[in-house]
Design a protein around this nucleic acid. Sequence first.
DNA 1: AAGTCAAATAAGAATAATTATCTTTTAAGA
DNA 2: TCTTAAAAGATAATTATTCTTATTTGACTT
Lengths: 132, 132
Amino acid sequence: MNYETLLKQHQLKITPQRIGILNMMHSAGHITIENLFEEIKKQFSSISLATLYKNINSMLDSSLITEVKAPNYKTHYEITKTPHAHFVCTSCGEHKDVEFDMSNLCKNLVDESTYEVAKTSVIVSGLCPDCK
Amino acid sequence: MNYETLLKQHQLKITPQRIGILNMMHSAGHITIENLFEEIKKQFSSISLATLYKNINSMLDSSLITEVKAPNYKTHYEITKTPHAHFVCTSCGEHKDVEFDMSNLCKNLVDESTYEVAKTSVIVSGLCPDCK
DNA sequence: AAGTCAAATAAGAATAATTATCTTTTAAGA
DNA sequence: TCTTAAAAGATAATTATTCTTATTTGACTT
């Protein structure tokens, strides 16, 4: 699916800046605000940091993107995909997606008759294969 | 165990401010920097915010405390306990500990022959029993 | 118990990160 | 096309965090 229709589905206006942000985010996999700004400036030299923040926030509000907040690392952003876990390498800092069935996890976590589970975030840190 | 020996174990100097911070953190369970500062000022009216930040950082470095970074919420801090998961209520904002066996989870998550897992963070959000 | 020293504190300056304000521009529907 | 609400850009304001310097204090030694 392309980003135009994705934005439309989330009732967000289609702008070149937003397309650019989503492209960067997609090719990086996960990216911080500051890296995103660096990259996006290459394409839109006059883009304002405020525009970036505002777009990040509106895309977060609509759940088009997701924030990944790993302990000891800056927040990374990714395009929302099917639920999965993250692995963060303490050596190279890389954030990697890890396939994982969240719904199964929740059954073991809290009593779903008393809690109403909405989202689950699983972040594992350690050494990735390259750094081990 | 009291906080003096806990600090000593982590090779941190015992100061009244640090004892106070740990007391607040313990009674709150999980607390943000700003709430911690509000509370601690009642006890140490002249405490500096820089002191709070520096202590939080040194206690994080030594793993005496742990940061809990839930999506959409400010970072909360807690005294490091045995590994457990967290539940964050999207209605009242409460952070609650949830018993959970992390080591078991990891076995299903990544191939431990290629990855070296150090820590795991599991944060579930939704409605707590009181808000459901 | 007094002396020493590295580390911690306080105060405030400096820097970084995020949000708000205001004007201009633009996407999208009539 | 025209219209309008929303988005972009510029920059100010706010908030969060770190740094600097002088002073104080905890912990260790004698």
